[in-house]
Nucleic acid binder design. Sequence first.
DNA 1: CTGTTAGCGCATTCAA
DNA 2: TTGAATGCGCTAACAG
Lengths: 342, 342
Amino acid sequence: MRQPRAKRKASIADVAKAVGVSKTTISRYLHGEYDYMSAQTRERIRKVIEELDYRPNRVAQILKATRSNIIGVVIADISNPFSSQLLKGIQTECRKHDIQLLISDADNSAKVERAAMESLLDSQVDGLIVNTAGDNDDFLTAFATTPGNPPMATLDRTLLPLVCDGVATDNAGGVNLMMDHLVAQGFEYVTFVVRPPSGITSRLHRINAMEDYLATHAIDGEVLIYDPAKDDLPDLLSRLSHDHVDDRICLFANNEETLQDILRACDREECRLLERAGLCTFGSENTRFTRSGITCLDQNPVLIGRTCAARLIDRIQSKSDKPFELIKLPTELHVYPSTEIR
Amino acid sequence: MRQPRAKRKASIADVAKAVGVSKTTISRYLHGEYDYMSAQTRERIRKVIEELDYRPNRVAQILKATRSNIIGVVIADISNPFSSQLLKGIQTECRKHDIQLLISDADNSAKVERAAMESLLDSQVDGLIVNTAGDNDDFLTAFATTPGNPPMATLDRTLLPLVCDGVATDNAGGVNLMMDHLVAQGFEYVTFVVRPPSGITSRLHRINAMEDYLATHAIDGEVLIYDPAKDDLPDLLSRLSHDHVDDRICLFANNEETLQDILRACDREECRLLERAGLCTFGSENTRFTRSGITCLDQNPVLIGRTCAARLIDRIQSKSDKPFELIKLPTELHVYPSTEIR
DNA sequence: CTGTTAGCGCATTCAA
DNA sequence: TTGAATGCGCTAACAG
């Protein structure tokens, strides 16, 4: 019945048989409980394990145990460089704890996201990190509050009311930081450019922060929502340009994706907006090489990922019921020529 | 002994008991073998499963089955945007086949890479995709040729002699494509800039292709290897500049990482090299937004990932012993102002 | 149409 | 010091 020796990997039973002891003893050996065996058996076990190249089957271990040491990650769009930084942070933290990562890309779809989460659950993950694609709050909340489900943490996006831990950028803080800078530079009209919020909290929070700022400070501006599907950005920008011919305008992009949308929109047409307008963005520090250097708010995604993983692991291990926490990490402003007044 | 009802998730036994049939029948239901049961039982099972919110435990399924429907991926550096595109491709292909991804970051270390591969093996993955960190050929070869190990495929980097499938960029083709372009543009001296090869085949192949090209075409140039740890690039570049004051120089970067190293090196010092030299790179198309637009060879990493996953899945499923294949995907040249002669 | 039985590989009582 | 027996949750003969 069993496969011909050579192919099939050795099991604990094979090792036991070869050594001439019971599986229990092998199991003990594997767990370092050397006190329960003679020095000779211990040595013989060592040798046989080496000869047979035996390695315990994690699947079987998981089936027995209550923990799998696997964390599931659902990421809205894995091809996004920002996401890959998040994953780097998660991975770094998890390696420290010898935890493996089952990663699933949601392809920016709430539906795929739900399926991925269910599927990860079936794989007995000890916890779940979710960078939601948006418009999925009901499901996420239900998931987090269902007794029996493993702990979950939201990544870069937040879920309110707080039904699980979450780590995200301090979006309002970032907006204020950038706006203060732009005011200091002497800009008169700032347009925050963003794709439709679609339930993505980071966008919503930034939009709110922006509106707050405009309402409470001596600077004018607006929030400009465009839709890449409609390709309406070029028109919106040229209208903006016409409406504010004499203002010192600055465009403030929601992220590098939008920054590129802006650059692309301004490439074609004879849109000369960027010749006179400032430009800045939420993003990573390598925007210093975009055009002549674009001022940006670095979010330190690696740290966000690390913090989120650490928080989740702590909750898994401590099993305590400390209150859920929403950790907001500050952004760092990097100034480059794009926000100098010309 | 068992946990208090509420917490523990329902098992197939719970469903069977609730319905009043055997586990076998439930198992059959789960696999769509409806012919083997009455319409009533079928309906009752459906209802009970819904009520209990029962979902089969994949870990138990895997333990029984010979396949896990999980593919392990070891990626040299997950924070690299190029890698994240590779992963996107892999993920896309795997979702089609309902295969999950256990992803591990090797942190650019051969040692971590080895540990990650062993660990993935223990998790009973059906196959392994390896984007090696380099300098690990012996282990990889041994791994691929060990009977009993699951099939493996190399990603973006190649292992020779061919002991497993592999998908990578057609590096030589790319170098030729770019060099032909540079010659046509009228450049007289082309320097291929690259970090130490360190057993990374893409770098080696490009270096070889570059040397071949220089030896066989009417254009001069060199391969310049720098070491970011020593921070020697600024010096190397200024020397280059002095040695070729009258030549029409072009720098050809190995990837976007190196491109940034070059830009950074030329930022400080009063290195005026870039004011007169051309610049191009292997990379993604968004280099069109770097500086005033950098000519690049797009490798289409998503396609590389997809192709690699497809190949591996085919090998897993067909179980056939077709000969191993090294698939080379072409690059696409995108021309931007950086390679115009000034 | 349905159930009984016997494992998958391992960890854990409990007993010796 | 050691081992036998049991079960994690599921599947698959084989037997009705």
